[in-house]
Amino acid sequence: MSWKAVDAGGGDLGPARPTAAAALCAAAVVAWPVGVAADDGRRLDLAAVLGAGGRRVQDLLDALSDGDTEVDVESLARLTPAGPVDLPVDVVALPGGVAATADVDPVWLAEVERRRATLRDSVLAAGRTEELEAALHVAMLVATERLDPTDDADVDAHVASGARLWLLAGAVVSALGGADSDPFAAWAWLVVAGWWPIGPCRGRLVVSAA
């Protein structure tokens, strides 16, 4: 049995591999939606290949690709990946967002990192390394293109893009971790809706229009 990554029309996106997840990892081009096809004719979508939590990843990438998701910025922003934060939400333009990065609460950021690492460890401990690699590969392949800075020399746009990719990668790990209250989910929805949630900065919770 071998599998290939395929696009919506069934076109090959990469070489044959012995598992569906490995076939996704071998896809070298951006296509959304992406799935896999077996040499016996079976087809699976991304969610089915990833298993538990895969539907959350697929829904996020659907929304990122559609680009027309509307969200309640104020309420989602307070549900940070490090836990709820009860601060006034300050929506700023991109330069103000980049300036605010210098004031991000380091304790809060360290907690985000800790949760992300714990979730990753739990996915790996569950023997789902291949699924995690496939999920991150596909998500970053799609998102790196969708969140590509328009101006290749614009440093601010690169900072925002990198931060949003970092949050999305955390959301993918978190989704596969399968927790009922996914700590990255709210901010992931802000990201796919076109926002860059930055974090608690000097008594305000800063969100930038990316």
Partner: peptide, 8 residues
């Protein structure tokens, strides 16, 4: 953070 996200 700014440098982290640029590196990302």
């Amino acid at each position: 953070p700014k440098e982290k996200w640029l590196a990302c």
